[in-house]
Amino acid sequence: MATDIFKKRRIHMVLFFAVFTGLYVFFSQQLNFNSATAFTQIPSGFAWLGANFWPNYTTTAPEFLLNIIRVLLRTVIIAVASTTTASAFALIAAVFGSNKTGIHWTIKYIVRIIAMVFRNIPLIAWALILLFSFRQNEFTGFLALFFGTFGYLTRSFTEIIDESGDGVIEALKSTGATYFQIVFQGVFPMISSQLVSWVLFMIESNIRESALVGMLTGTGIGQMFNFFFSGFRYPMAGMVLLFIIITVIGLEMLSNKIRRLLL
């Protein structure tokens, strides 16, 4: 039977749009979501933002600006520390969890399940769970970022090791290299630029996430934004937001530059 590619394609497209519309209508009803309000209110949202969040004379006091920079720098440092620590643990976990370098299948599955649990519990849930025992401080923020990052990077690193070439491992094995020599001299150098790229990506993402984590754990830039925002001091909140934007874009450009240097 000759299949008509155009007919098949049309059926695919119709099916796709039917599923799309169905989901949209169903969940709109569940949520009382008014599409018209949502879309027409976006411009007025921005107008409100421009009118209220625009920094004014109260927000340009040098002490205030210095304070923002100090808090933001601290947040960046915590996010970097958390990501770095999580990457180290993730790398070890990935070596044991990978098909290529794993030692035994039981360990492989245990590692994969642990990583899955860690990354699939939303960050806000981690922050809340940790908050009960570790209370409001920097360390709690550090841990919340750490858990999610560890789970996420373990998956990425495992995939990277799995996809790396067999040649190097085989060549080293045939020369009589030990397991650790193969991992450290063969596997790590081969994948180092990909690993670094992921770590940089996670640092960027964690700095953004620390806005949410900070609100809950009462530290860093999230807490600062929340303080001004819930106190109706919008120009100051606007200034904090501006600094967040500058920092995130700056770090994104920096990490793109580093990626190019490492290639």
Partner: peptide
Amino acid sequence: RAIPAILWVLIFALAMGLGSEAAVV
């Protein structure tokens, strides 16, 4: 991308009023 999702939501919730619209946007 530089603005965290939670801040978008807080801002739109104030500008649009509380509800699912602000959260979705």
